[in-house]
Amino acid sequence: MDIKTIKTPENLVYQRPRLLNDCTMHYCPGCSHGVAHRIIAEIIDEMGQADNTIAIAPVGCAVFAYKYIDVDWIEAAHGRAPAVATAAKRLNPERLVFTYQGDGDLAAIGTAETIHAANRGENIAIIFINNGIYGMTGGQMAPTTLEGMKTSTTPYGRRVDLNGYPLNITPLLAQLPGTCYVTRQSVETPAAVAKAKRAIRRAFDNSINHRGCSVVEIVSTCSSGWKMSPDKANKWMEQNMFEAYRPGDLKIADGDK
């Protein structure tokens, strides 16, 4: 059979989302960011929000998120995305406004901005990529790095007596009255991707409909930082990360849905 007879529109089952730009991503092979970007691009298009979205990029591996998803973006200073999103949403209340942040951005340098935006009930969605390591700067310890986990700044493994405990911030955000929907997802299997997509769509819907602050944590891999093959990283994540950061809904208070 000739390739041309296979590549016909009626046989098409998978394609680049319309809002995902046709350019080479800088993410490493096996990185969860690529999948997360893809489903966000799909959701914005499916919701018909391409002309109604302000996205806030972080500092960290996803600093170039604005190059990949074809909507209006604001690139925030490190940790300040929730503050930037607060003003963007309050001044443009009809827009879908979301931040896309890693564990260092959200749970270390930007903890104050995260907690206060969530506690004020800002009508934004926070997409939180938790891979337990600083990928962009070369694999240093993150606030979410697991006990015993080796990073370039914990070369013998994280010790709580030296480095403190892993910060499990999402349940903390779920306690705040300003959050309406807090969930923990992952994107390592097709089923998990489908679930994560539903969660992000729900969070975006909450932003548009002013239901409060939504937080979608995506427990992720960093095969480069973890020094593992993508496949092994997925398995390691399921065995270790899921124990500390168990996937599932942490809070559902966004009304009848």
Binding site: I54, A76, V84, E113
Partner: peptide
């Protein structure tokens, strides 16, 4: 919640042309 947040809110608002 802080001056850090304040100025970054200003950044966010200004970025949208406000």
């Amino acid at each position: 919640e802080s001056e850090l947040a304040s100025i970054n809110m200003v950044y966010g608002g200004a970025a949208t042309g406000k």
